[in-house]
């Protein structure tokens, strides 16, 4: 009997070790409701701060509440959806001078490391690919809320991220230094549990 019990115990240990740890919840960006904002801010000729955004964004967040550092973020931005509320400027920013959207229509961010901090804050480091160049970027991220939707009760979560890059790191050199090199990235998303 003891031998049979030890076989069962051994088999249980083998099977349980092969199983993944508590799986993360997968959230997809709320593209239907467009509850997201992917924007950028850059100095305009050293005077004002110019704001722009990308209207079409998609992505997933594999959120592990118990172990946030095991979470994973993937964001895909349609660069051709660039919008600065000015058609001529959009045409210029889409041209080979800047985002070169006809040649590189997609911007992606894939997290590689997440360092949780206090009060829902985290440093999310990932590979940002833009204009065909991939660079490691760290975003200061805050988990705003994870819970049930107040109306339909479905699980929902929201995050906010900020970071700064140098556009010259991505080979976007046109207009330097008159048009600023530092670009602030803003990503606010609401995501629905899958």
């Amino acid at each position: 009997m003891n031998r049979i019990a030890s076989y069962f115990l051994g088999a249980f240990l083998v099977i349980s070790s092969a199983l993944p740890a508590a799986a993360a919840d997968v959230y997809a960006l709320d593209t239907g409701g467009r509850h997201y904002y992917a924007g950028f801010e850059i100095s305009h000729l050293g005077f004002s701060i110019m704001h722009g955004r990308f209207d079409d964004v998609d992505g997933t967040i594999e959120y592990d509440a118990a172990n946030p550092s095991a979470s994973k973020v993937t964001v895909k931005i349609d660069a051709t959806s660039l919008n600065t509320n000015h058609a001529k400027r959009d045409a210029h920013l889409s041209s080979p001078d800047f985002f070169n959207t006809a040649e590189f229509p997609e911007i992606t961010f894939v997290s590689t490391k997440i360092e949780p901090g206090a009060d829902g804050m985290a440093k999310v480091t990932g590979d940002l690919t833009m204009v065909g160049v991939t660079k490691s970027v760290t975003l200061d991220t805050r988990t705003i809320k994870v819970g049930a939707h107040p109306f339909n009760k479905s699980p929902i979560a929201a995050w906010s991220a900020r970071g700064t890059i140098k556009r010259s790191d991505f080979g976007i050199n046109y207009g330097l230094p008159i048009i600023g090199d530092d670009v602030t990235l803003v990503l606010d998303v609401e995501a629905l549990k899958q």
């Binding site: 080979p96 070169n100 040649e103 590189f104 204009v131 065909g132 160049v133 010259s168 080979g171 050199n173 046109y174 330097l176």
Partner: peptide
């Protein structure tokens, strides 16, 4: 002077 030295290998059409 306008665009800086292009990387090798070139990545974009401009480079």
């Amino acid at each position: 002077i306008t665009f800086g030295l292009p990387p090798f290998p070139a990545n974009t059409s401009g480079q």
